[in-house]
Structures are given as C-alpha cells and as structure tokens.
Design a protein around this nucleic acid. Structure first.
Lengths: 147, 147
DNA sequence: AGAGGTTATATAGCATGCGATCTTTTTCCA
DNA sequence: TGGAAAAAGATCGCATGCTATATAACCTCT
C-alpha cells in the first residue's frame, strides 16, 4: 500500500483488525473472543445489566448487542432473566464459569495492550492513547450531529 | 465505559468503527462503501490487478477480498477477466462508471481525514499518524511471527 | 512425461457491525 | 382514563472479516 493512501480511516481500521486478531488468539485459550470483552467487563463491575445499558456502555448499536448477547447466552457465558419491574427489559449476568475467567481475561487484555504499546517509545504511550480517545470522542459527536 | 477499561484494542476498534460509519455515510452519495476504497484506490493506480495482489495491497485475507470483489463485480464497480498467461488468475479493472467517481471519492476520503485529524492539535497530527502506522506494522509483524 | 509441491481462487461456516422495521410495554398528558 | 408517544427488544438483510479446507492450474525435478 502506497504511503500516500494510508488515510486515517484505513490506518485505524487496519490497526483495529490486527489488534483484534491478536486478542482473539490469546482469548481462544479461555473460550472467549474480543467481542465478548466489553460485556464481560461491564457485568464484572455491575450486575445485572439490561441489553440497552450494555449497548450504551460498549458504544455498540442495539441489534449488534442483541446478537452478541444471544451468542453469549447460547455459549453459556451470560444468563438472561426478565426484569420484574419492567416486562420489556431483559437483565443479563455472568455465569459462574465466566466469573472464574475474569482474571485470565484481564491478563490477556493487558498482554495485548503491552504488545501494542511497546511499539512506541515509552514516553509517547500515554499521549498516544489519549489522542486516540480524543479522536474517537470527536468522531462520535460528529456522527451524532449529522443525524 | 469506565476510563480504566479503555484498552488499546477497544479504543482502536471503536475509533475504527466510527470512522468507517462516517466514511460510509459520505460515500453513499457516490454509490460506494469504505470496503471498496482500497480496491478502487489500487486499481486507479495500476490496472489490471489479480485478486491476490489486491488482497496483499489492502492487507486483507484472500477470502475477504474474494467476497468484496464478488460484490463489487455484481454492483458494476469492477470487471473481471481471465489472465491469458495463467488460467488460475482473475484480473480486475475498474468500470468506466467507477473511474468517473474517483475524484469525488478522493474528496470524500479527504474530508473524513480532516474531520478525524481536526480533533487533534495541528502540530500533533503527523506524529499521531506515524505512531498509528508504527503500531500497526508492529502488530502485523507480531501476528506473522506467532504462526 | 509424470509425481509432487506450490499457487491462485473458491467455498463453507461463523462472528461482528450497521440501518430499518416491527412488537410489546410503559409513560404521560389532555 | 384513554390514546398517543417513547422505550426496549427482536428481526431482517446485508457488508466485512477471519479460519479452514477444497479445487484447479502451474512448475519442478527426475
């Protein structure tokens, strides 16, 4: 790929695919995938949570979260139960088996993080991370405005 | 999403999704999608190209490129013809209609680029882009080594 | 020439994403 | 209170990605 054509979009998307593959490889050993991460992280901190809350937490559209949760439920990673106070709502929690994997999961994530950041000089890492977040938040705002 | 949980992988993937949505929105007007970009860019510079060459150029796996090209052919964006010298090879070129869109396409990409980069101070943009590329190349190397 | 390895595509199977819609419940106000 | 508006999920349809595997066409070396 010629250097001039490495647009921001291409670059970010490329890096994202690579990080994802790397993460999925490590997570395979504990029976999880990168797509499960935001859900498990969220539920590890606050249980139970509705599909809506999970989707917002992960910045993912509702149909995408619905599909992810359906797969996770099918695979015994999360459990769904109705909300007694609102019959529209489904509440999700981690299964005991998944709770036992949280430690290994955090370790795997941390490894990928280190591998990615180790490509940059130590004194640039924090700034880089921050810039990435700034850009993402700006894009999110942009996307919202245009609707 | 709590700040501590914004792992590198999550951040990059998030930014990638947002950039992609933004790009797709702009490209919709000219009848293209972000997935078409690397192919159109490549063919705009060197025609014709085999599926293999396109996949390598775009850093995408062969089956993914095969599917993308099949859709693009179906939608009249590219044309496929056999290679006289090697019957295994399929050579792809842009259709005349697509060639006429290259200008608009470049403009749309440039717009998204600017929108993304404008979130950062001007004097940090070049460095940031470079860091992103460095990280991606490192991840690519990593991924290759582990096989 | 022919066996065996290499290469270029094709296919299957599945995960993740998105937008657009439909249904069921809740809410809320006239 | 009744009927409209809002909220939460469920579904459809499709694009993109990946891995694993199959197939067909070359190439090489004996």
């Amino acid at each position: 790929m010629a250097d001039d054509d490495l647009s921001m979009g291409y670059l970010v998307h490329w890096a994202g695919r690579l990080l994802r593959r790397l993460a999925d490889r490590k997570l395979k050993a504990i029976g999880l995938t990168s797509g499960h991460l935001p859900v498990v992280n969220a539920l590890a901190q606050a249980e139970p949570m509705s599909q809506k809350a999970l989707a917002e937490w992960a910045s993912i559209e509702q149909p995408t979260m619905a599909a992810t949760l359906a797969r996770m439920e099918r695979d015994g990673i999360v459990e769904r139960r109705p909300d007694a106070r609102d019959r529209r709502v489904a509440l999700f929690s981690l299964t005991a088996a998944t709770r036992g994997k949280i430690g290994a999961l955090r370790m795997a994530v941390e490894e990928v993080n280190q591998e990615a950041l180790s490509a940059l000089p130590a004194d640039q890492r924090a700034t880089f991370r921050h810039q990435l977040e700034t850009m993402a938040r700006a894009m999110e705002k942009r996307l919202g405005e245009e609707l």
